[in-house]
Design a protein around this nucleic acid. Structure first.
Length: 665
DNA sequence: AAGCATCCTG
DNA sequence: CAGGATGCTT
């Protein structure tokens, strides 16, 4: 797009990289607070930054085939951690490289054999990375132990080297450019991945920053300066003023002082472009660096998820502590004591306008230092992860008042107010959730009262919930949903804007993800319909924001249900035949049947749902179909089941309207 | 080619 | 239950 601009603004002083952002990351209120542990560790100058710097340095070195870096730069990591020097050397180095455009360094370097020295360097980088991923605490010291690493390097070198050599020298990137597969494009995908991760990390940091801001807002509104003042009091106050004053809240202690808006803020575009440019350049990387990329990638993933997990965890811990200790003006859905949640109008959080303002100020600043998240979606990530949102286990049925609820559904409120790029935030969060340690979300008990009996399969619920239970659920529904959902489902780009449009404060319970409750509901629905149309699904999951992913997931669910169903049928049919049953009519399915029990166990484990009679009939018919088919040896035909499927699919019945209730989970 | 279903596997 | 492979349908 505006890549053209980037070239102009490329000059050494532009430190576009993430290295700069450390101070910005932490809200003043959170510095020295309990967040320090979790946040500071992940500030931009954390290992990641250093690692990135080193990696880039190494890569550049390799690219250029020589170590043009001043010795200070290479060893800078062994000095302190942040050191402006380091940045400068890095950037100046980068700029020094710039002239050699990606294109110009094409073939000669591309084929250049990697020297032993270079490989040793690589080994070192890998060591750093490994050390980092291995023990978070030891990471910071890794720099100071360069010597030790060097020593270890020799050991590791051969092993690593061996491994690296297995890395395909040509990754078939299908570039029509030239015959040589080892051309500049080779390292691209790896690097892109790393780049993406970096971008995501930055965006995440932005998010964290916003979280903090949000917290400060809420906190300072609800907390008439209490204990927290001791921790970060003045900073908080200042922050608050600044925020409401629509100003940059950052304090002088930042290494990105606002006294130089031109340098700092103003250079945003520069930084951005530079960043892009570097990315572009890196795409011209060589296969030799791929190994680093791989490790780096993993390390980044690790760091990213851990950072988020820890931070979010810490954040909500603190948040919840605040809420619990103070009857804040901001009422975050507490547990429903009476069935009236006080959630409806309380629209979690302070008045929206203020938050919006905050958001704006945050935004302007946030945009300053990162933009990389931009084009990089998380597509490359295909790690298997359950699409089902796992609710934290409902621990204490009775301890309603103790549960601490996340003030916002993770995907909603705080992240996309007037934001220009809600999509990225969400996607990144999504991504992080994917990789994030689930445990960290379950660690704090954001739990509503137990669903248990409230599960309004009320239609045929065996349980005897009083007539009034429905209204209670109606109220309960949204809150539970909001409080519990951690949408894990891959989102569809097309739906995100719509998401963003929704009022984040609206206690609406639209889900981007399917929860276990949805799964349960789907299973119960299976008693009525084995082949639900997507329309039916939409109708009966009104609280789900449908997109292709969700739809196919639901469809897949029913497919799985059917699979199990038919397997059981076949099994029991064969069993009957084995048992010498000769007449179909001897076989009937009742609630006492083993077959039924197996099915019931699968679809209605809690056994709190009165399975409709019709299902028994259908099951019996199915069983008969299988029995007959097998008896007639139709099963020799590979597709013999299809005929049965055809019969069964016509036996669907209507799903009771009660299932339409969104709170019917 | 896309969408859906089943089968198979983990 | 999810993902991938496969096959069928449109």
């Amino acid at each position: 797009m505006n890549l053209s601009l980037s070239d102009q603004n490329m000059h050494p002083p532009c430190k576009g990289g993430p290295e700069e952002e450390k101070p910005e990351l932490l809200h003043p209120c959170f510095r020295r607070s309990m967040y320090d542990d979790s946040l500071a560790t992940y500030s931009n100058d954390s290992i990641i930054s250093q690692l990135l710097r080193k990696t880039i340095q190494n890569k550049r070195a390799l690219d250029e085939g020589l170590f043009y870096l001043p010795a200070a730069a290479l060893s800078s990591s062994s000095v302190a951690d942040s050191s402006q020097e380091d940045h400068n050397s890095t950037s100046s180095k980068n700029s020094a490289v710039e002239p050699a455009s990606p294109g110009s360094q094409s073939s000669p370097e591309g084929e250049r054999p990697v020297s032993e020295h270079h490989r040793a360097k690589r080994a070192r980088v890998e060591n750093i990375i490994r050390g980092m991923a291995g023990s978070p605490n030891a990471r910071l010291s890794s720099d100071g132990e360069r010597g030790e690493e060097d020593a270890r390097e020799a050991r590791d070198f051969y092993r690593e080297n061996k491994r690296k050599q297995r890395v395909p020298q040509h990754q078939e990137h299908g570039l029509s450019e030239g015959a040589s597969a080892g051309r500049g494009s080779v390292g691209g995908s790896r690097d892109e991945e790393c780049q993406r991760l970096r971008d995501q990390l930055r965006a995440m940091q932005r998010l964290l920053r916003q979280l903090q801001e949000k917290f400060v807002q809420v906190h300072s509104l609800s907390d008439s300066e209490q204990d927290d003042r001791e921790e970060a009091g003045s900073a908080c106050a200042t922050e608050h003023d600044d925020v409401t004053g629509d100003r940059e809240p950052q304090e002088g202690s930042e290494s990105e002082p606002h006294t130089e808006p031109d340098r700092e803020v103003g250079r945003r575009p520069d930084g951005t472009k530079m960043y892009r440019r570097q990315a572009g350049k890196r795409e011209g990387g060589q296969a030799a660096v791929r190994a680093e990329g791989e490790s780096l990638q993993e390390a980044l993933k690790y760091e990213l998820s851990r950072a988020v997990g820890d931070t979010v965890d810490a954040f909500f811990k603190k948040f919840s502590a605040t809420l619990l200790t103070q009857p804040a003006p901001v009422r975050v859905a507490q547990t429903p004591v009476n069935g009236n949640l006080g959630l409806k109008k309380s629209t979690k959080g302070p008045s929206s306008p203020e938050l919006f303002r905050t958001e704006e100020s945050v935004k302007s600043r946030a945009l300053d230092y990162c933009e990389g998240a931009e084009a990089q979606s998380a597509e490359g990530q295909t790690e298997a992860l359950s699409l089902v949102v796992r609710k934290p286990a409902l621990s204490h049925p009775g301890s309603t008042g103790q549960g601490v609820k996340r003030p916002y559904p993770l995907h909603h409120a705080p992240f996309h107010f007037g934001y220009s790029a809600p999509f990225h935030e969400n996607q990144i969060l999504e991504h992080l959730l994917k990789y994030g340690p689930h445990g960290s979300f379950g660690s704090f008990s954001c739990l509503p009262p137990p669903m248990d009996r409230s599960s309004p399969d009320s239609v045929d619920l065996v349980s005897s919930i009083p007539a009034g239970h429905h209204s209670r659920q109606a109220a309960l529904g949204p809150m539970m949903v909001d409080g519990l959902s951690l949408p894990h489902v891959k989102m569809e780009c097309g739906d995100l804007p719509a998401m963003a449009e929704r009022n984040p404060y609206m206690p609406l319970n639209i889900q981007e993800g399917l929860t276990p409750s949805h799964l349960k509901k789907a299973k119960l629905m299976f008693f009525y319909t084995r082949y639900p149309s997507s329309n039916v699904l939409k109708t009966f999951f009104p609280d789900v924001k449908f997109n292709r992913c969700i739809t196919s997931q639901l469809i897949k669910w029913f497919s799985n249900f059917r699979e199990f169903y038919y397997i059981q049928m076949e099994k029991f049919a064969r069993q009957a035949i084995m048992d010498g049953v000769s007449d179909v009519k001897e076989m009937c399915v009742t609630r006492d049947s083993e077959l039924f029990r197996a099915l019931n166990m699968h679809y209605n484990k809690a056994n709190d749902f009165q399975v409709p009679e019709r299902f028994l009939e259908v099951a019996e018919i199915t069983l008969h179909e299988f029995f007959n088919a097998i008896s007639l040896s139709k099963d020799s035909d590979p597709s013999w089941k299809k005929a049965i499927y055809k019969v069964i699919c016509k036996l669907d019945s209507e799903v009771p309207d009660e299932f339409k209730s969104s709170s019917c989970l």
